[in-house]
Amino acid sequence: MIETASLIVTNLIIAALIGMIIGYLIGKNSGGTYKPSKNTDNTDENIDSKSKSSVNPIFRKNSSVDNKPLILSSPRPSGKDNLTKIKGIDLKVEKDLNKLGIFHFNQIAAWSNKNCDWIEEFLSLQGCAKKNQWIEQAKILETGKETVYSQKVENGEVDVS
């Protein structure tokens, strides 16, 4: 029994060494080496407009992604929801949410308190989402019903620009 176990361990060590050697040789022959950017400032001003569209905004900020809410790469074929129907979301905030991958009411309705905190921190909207009850409003709007605020937006009584 011990002889079998020692043979298994020996084989695992040999396989690991062979794997490291093969990985080293492949990495060495690929020619490319990792060169980290010398720019340690992660602000949006240091990223040109071409790369802004190709870099996910989550990687441009110093924010933990542990509590990041569920995101989509693009809206559903039926189109994105009008997030400005939620009190506290104007066109700028809606655009920022869309850049993050949040397009629909049901995404916001599924947020936890930690997701809400993450969004507030990431978009620099301290307390806005909780104070305006984005999650509760999104739960109502995802069912197809309207809130008092969303009706005012629909009627043009509220300026969301």
Rank of each mutant, 00 (worst) to 15 (best):
A5L: 13
S6H: 13
S6Y: 14
V9Y: 13
L12F: 10
I14C: 09
M20Y: 08
M20T: 13
L25M: 12
G32Q: 15
T33K: 15
P36N: 12
D41Q: 10
T43Q: 08
D48K: 01
S51H: 15
S53H: 15
I58N: 03
F59E: 05
N62I: 03
V65T: 14
D66F: 08
K68E: 03
I71K: 11
S74W: 10
P75N: 04
R76F: 08
P77T: 07
P77L: 03
S78R: 13
G79C: 00
D81W: 02
N82A: 09
T84N: 03
G88R: 00
I89H: 01
D90E: 12
K92C: 14
G101L: 00
H104D: 04
H104F: 01
S112H: 01
N113W: 12
N115L: 02
D117F: 09
D117S: 06
E120M: 02
L123P: 05
L123E: 04
L123F: 09
L125R: 07
Q126S: 14
G127K: 06
C128F: 10
A129D: 01
K130W: 02
I135M: 04
I135P: 00
Q137Y: 06
K139N: 08
K139T: 03
I140E: 02
I140C: 06
T147R: 01
S150K: 05
Q151I: 13
N155T: 10
D159F: 04
D159M: 03
V160D: 00
